[in-house]
Simulated assay, not measured.
Amino acid sequence: MTFINDPHYGNSSIEFDINGLVTSAVAKTTNLQKHPQLSLACGGASKMLLLSLDEDVLNSALEVHFKAGSMHWVVDKVPDQSLLNTANWKFIIPRLYWNYPNDDMLLNISMASSPVIRITSEKIEATINADMVIDVVDGKEIVPVACISVIVSASGVVDALGNKVYGRVGLDNFSLALKWSKIGNFHMSLIQGVIRVFLNTVCMPYLNSRLGNGFILPVVHGFTLQDVYVLTSAEQLTLCSDVTFNASSLTSLSRM
């Protein structure tokens, strides 16, 4: 991170502009050439602290996780467990059942590219491009039988409490394409309804459980954000807050 421009002094505030991206420990990156002039007036109320994140910062964090190979998920349990058995697909994908009658299945999901976040004044949008490999558990062997490209459009909102920011997301739309298959060609329209149920009952709740854990904001030790106001605008997420200080935290830190 880099401090840019000179500090802006007000009657009761000092404003700093900080420029930077999230990157891995071994990667190098150039600074953004965006120098927004921020105001400490947020939602009509003056706040002690303003933290503004450009969507490029969030996307750079997602890219770090993508390149690290951490965006991978194997699904072996769903609310309707019969969906993960070939018998339930007998009339939808006949060759799947003929080749592997009454076998359990796994869904091996990995990102085909880094997710992309777009921030607007109304909401935060995300585009997720994933490959979903259908694996059949044939005895002790796991056999990949087909791969489906799934592109998901989702949107959500952000909230904050204390020194954490939380989010929740919902499905907007999705598209499917068959990438390869060992069980013959089958039209995506045949499985679209099942995939919609899967996205709404498994994927979205999973994402919301992760987002619901919250992400810690970079706040100085001993300080706690209070009465946080979250605002989205074109390409930016802004958090305005008052700050409380715990003197005992400073005392404990000085003893270390």
Rank of each mutant, 00 (worst) to 15 (best):
I119E: 07
M71N: 11
I93M: 10
N173H: 01
I128V: 13
I183M: 01
K90D: 10
Q192Y: 00
L171C: 07
V157S: 06
T127G: 09
S121N: 05
S110F: 02
G139T: 06
S121G: 05
R168A: 05
A177T: 13
V150K: 08
M111R: 06
D172M: 01
L83F: 15
S153Q: 02
I109S: 14
V75K: 13
D104Y: 10
S181A: 01
N85V: 10
N88H: 14
I124E: 09
Y97N: 13
L83S: 12
S110E: 14
N185I: 09
K123D: 13
V133M: 14
N102S: 00
L83R: 09
I134S: 11
V169S: 06
G167M: 03
D80T: 14
V169C: 12
Y166S: 05
A126K: 08
W73I: 04
Q81F: 05
V116W: 15
M188R: 00
L178W: 08
Y97R: 12
I191N: 00
Q81C: 05
F174I: 06
W89V: 15
V152I: 10
V78R: 08
N108W: 04
D104A: 14
M105D: 04
P144V: 06
E125F: 05
I142P: 11
D159Y: 11
I93Q: 06
N163M: 00
E141C: 11
G193N: 02
I124T: 07
V137P: 06
R118D: 13
A126E: 11
L171V: 07
L84A: 10
I93E: 12
